[in-house]
């Protein structure tokens, strides 16, 4: 066979970054119809509202990359939210679950630890008992939600300012939560492209048998994958509580996992495993964010938003499958 000419492959560039072009087109179209879209205030709102789901997406995309899925993050976020929030309630709060008070940063770490523990248990189940991740994480979704409600039947509110600042403190007009999202995104990108862990997960998602033969500890790496997804979910939960000054066990993080799976999928993460790019994941998060934001600006019905999101997700998967089917 003759070699393809080396150099810039325009087609490949286009298909790899298709969602970024979609994003640009959406943004331009919205700006024309509603110039307010491009205002700094609106963009800040957009980023702020997508940050928490974005953090969850940074974890979930790893499980999809490993040929699995994680349906737990929304509930894990609720659980970590109520627990961490209960340790940072103001002294003058009306209903306090207990009187133990922790420094804000400790509460955040606690939230991440809760996520990590759930993730390790799920990862262990997936790796060693070989139950399907869909089932394992469906279990964790139900159990964590119930645990959150058992821990506190009512929303936990009136939180310390120090704790709340992790989400709402503004640097250059941008809330902290956005910076934390970007930090998590960069860590995720770094692990995926620069660390052995990332390469291992690409291998496991692409061909777990071959990964095993190449000396990769498949089980350990799967546990780490779900642990990371759990950590992201736990952190997201704490930030959610901090941002809204309320940790509600029954509504916090509800269906966030689906938005995260949708964003990862739209961003080119393949459900067949072994394919994921963090830049794609970011484009997926932003495209869904722009749609949410744009339809609010246009005053559209919430149901319409859901329909458009649904169409985009299915469309993205169809495009993705066609791309992968073009093998010579």
């Amino acid at each position: 066979m003759e070699a393809t000419k080396k150099g810039f492959d325009f087609k490949k560039f286009m298909s790899d970054n298709a969602m970024w072009f979609v994003l640009i087109i959406l943004a331009v179209a919205l700006t024309i119809v509603r110039p307010a879209f491009l205002s700094i205030a609106n963009l800040t709102t957009l980023f702020t509202s997508e940050s928490i789901k974005g953090i969850i997406t940074c974890g979930v995309c790893w499980t999809i990359l490993s040929k699995g899925i994680d349906l737990g993050p929304g509930s894990v976020a609720a659980l970590s939210a109520v627990i961490s929030a209960s340790f940072v309630q103001s002294d003058d709060a009306l209903s306090r679950l207990h009187s133990i008070h922790l420094p804000a940063i400790v509460a955040i770490v606690l939230a991440m630890l809760i996520g990590a523990v759930v993730g390790i248990i799920i990862g262990w189940l997936v790796a060693y008992t070989h139950i399907h991740p869909f089932i394992a994480t469906l279990g964790s979704q139900l159990i964590c939600r119930a645990l959150a409600k058992m821990y506190s039947s009512a929303p936990v509110s009136n939180l310390d300012e120090g704790f709340r600042n992790f989400a709402i403190y503004k640097v250059a007009g941008i809330p902290m939560v956005v910076f934390i999202f970007l930090l998590i995104f960069i860590i995720s990108w770094f692990m995926m492209t620069q660390c052995r862990f990332g390469k291992n997960i690409f291998a496991i998602g692409g061909n777990d048998q071959a990964a095993r033969v190449a000396g990769i500890n498949v089980e350990k790496n799967l546990v780490l994958t779900y642990m990371w997804s759990g950590i992201c979910a736990g952190l997201a939960g704490a930030l959610l509580a901090a941002r809204t000054d309320s940790a509600d066990p029954s509504t916090n993080g509800l269906q966030y996992e689906f938005d995260a799976i949708a964003a990862a999928t739209v961003g080119g993460t393949s459900q067949t495993g072994g394919v994921c790019r963090m830049s794609g994941v970011m484009s997926g998060i932003l495209v869904l964010g722009v749609i949410n934001n744009g339809l609010v600006l246009l005053g559209a019905n919430d149901n319409l938003t859901q329909i458009i999101k649904g169409l985009i997700i299915v469309g993205a998967v169809v495009v993705d499958m066609r791309k992968n089917a073009k093998k010579p």
Binding site: K199, A203, A210, R212, V213, A214
Partner: peptide, 15 residues
């Protein structure tokens, strides 16, 4: 259980 079809030559070599 040999190749990682989706990965490139470099990655397959060093895996």
């Amino acid at each position: 259980n040999g190749i990682f079809g989706l990965l490139d030559i470099t990655e397959n070599t060093v895996m």
